[in-house]
């Protein structure tokens, strides 16, 4: 079964499965304990190290299992965890499990340009105003028409002393938006990198005097980024390319890491994201096998009723036209061969003396003959005429 085509072979929208996009990815932590070694943390000893890799490893037999920051004694107390996902994903949720008391303030950010710029997805705090300059999230979600980074309550401590940060992209999105039809929602869920900023430790919430602060370290595990590899509805899976980079296994005549453009010869229609209703596949230009390149022309596309806008480039085999569908000047269509035949166009071969020019009728192959001359190539005198010695008037009336 091909998820990207129906049983009849027609293209249909397809998407990769939901995965933990952070799994196995390298996490960049702004602070990790163990350098220099302390009583409880030694980066050089695997039995006592708490590296950031533990945040996105599959778990299993690793011991210890939690990443841990350095001991934070005074401001700034924020620690940043950054996970490059390798390519664009469409997020569904982000979660992080804390191994000790969860922070009182956490900011969740995303990048769509591999870490060059960042935008907030949400905030989690007991003090939204002082920490982030925001009002607490309304119960019904964003007030505006589009998605918005809201400030939610801080992660709650659980009975085991830890806690869970859980964020769903729906939390910041107004109800009723449909991913297929809403470019703002598509933008909202798209991310190439995720950043968690642990802004303020819980136990220091009420401490005003920095001298009185108890040393604190953040500790967490299981950083999960639930999402789908972003392929714009044109691939059902993502693969590693020859350079080890994650890319979509593009179908429907598309290409690029996210299937976000048409392949070079597939430009008969403009690229579009696939929807549940319409696959919006890129179609190959119709060049009858005589061209390898084409370009898209929006005006022709509109004039055709939005059906075809491809223009063939560099028609070969002596063909010409938008679809290489007729013969170029000096050639005519051989009716005995298919239009796609390499020899579909034959040279006019007009006689150098009998013909009045070198260009024949492109359909019939008839050359323009001088007076008294006949034949497809004007190579014979007509009945009632005979050859003369003059190349200007090669046939004269028989006396």
């Amino acid at each position: 079964a091909d998820p990207c085509h129906d049983q009849g072979g027609a293209p249909r929208s397809c998407v990769p499965g939901l995965v933990n996009a952070a799994l196995g990815r390298e996490v960049l932590a702004s602070s990790t304990c163990g350098r220099p070694a302390t009583r409880v943390c030694d980066a050089s000893d695997p039995r006592r190290a708490h590296p950031a890799a533990l945040l996105t490893s599959a778990g299993g037999t690793a011991n210890p299992v939690c990443w841990r920051s350095e001991s934070l004694r005074k401001a700034p107390l924020n620690v940043t965890l950054t996970v490059p996902l390798g390519k664009a994903f469409e997020l569904v949720f982000v979660s992080l499990r804390f191994c000790s008391a969860p922070p009182a303030s956490v900011a969740l950010l995303k990048s769509q340009d591999h870490g060059r710029t960042w935008a907030p997805l949400g905030f989690f705090s007991s003090r939204c105003g002082p920490d982030y300059g925001r009002l607490p999230a309304p119960a019904n979600g964003p007030a505006g028409p589009g998605p918005e980074a809201l400030c939610f309550p801080e992660p709650q401590a659980q009975s085991d002393g830890g806690g869970l940060l859980a964020f769903s992209v729906q939390d910041g999105s107004p109800p009723g938006l449909d991913l297929d039809s809403s470019p703002v929602l598509q933008d909202w869920v798209t991310a190439t990198d995720i950043r968690v900023v642990l802004t303020r430790p819980a136990m220091l919430e009420d401490t005003r005097d920095s001298e009185a602060m108890v040393p604190y370290s953040y500790s967490a595990t299981e950083l999960q980024v639930g999402g789908r590899c972003k392929c714009n509805g044109h691939a059902s899976r993502c693969l590693l390319d020859t350079q080890g980079l994650l890319i979509c296994d593009c179908r429907h005549g598309t290409e690029g890491p996210d299937c976000s453009r048409c392949k070079p010869f597939y430009c008969d229609r403009p690229w579009q994201r696939a929807t549940a209703r319409e696959a919006h596949a890129c179609f190959a230009c119709s060049c009858n096998g005589h061209a390898r390149r084409c370009r898209f022309n929006m005006e022709l596309y509109r004039l055709s009723g939005r059906r075809s806008g491809g223009v063939c480039l560099n028609c070969r085999h002596n063909t010409a036209g938008r679809h290489c569908h007729y013969c170029r000047e000096g050639f005519y269509r051989d009716p005995g061969r298919a239009l796609s035949d390499r020899r579909a166009c034959r040279a006019c071969d007009c006689h150098p003396v009998g013909a009045a020019g070198k260009t024949c009728n492109q359909t019939t192959g008839q050359c323009p003959c001088k007076d008294g001359v006949t034949g497809l190539t004007c190579n014979r005198c007509a009945p009632g005429f005979q050859q003369s010695r003059s190349p200007v008037a090669p046939c004269v009336k028989t006396p």
Binding site: H351, P352, V353, G354, V373, T374, G375, N379, R380, C381, A382, P383, F385, Q387, R389, S390, P391, V392, P394, C395
Partner: peptide
Amino acid sequence: EVMPTLDMALFDWTDYEDLKPEV
């Protein structure tokens, strides 16, 4: 009636040297 093809050797190019096709 099928007429013979034009015989290039019969043409006199004396006054039309510039029109003479390359063979």
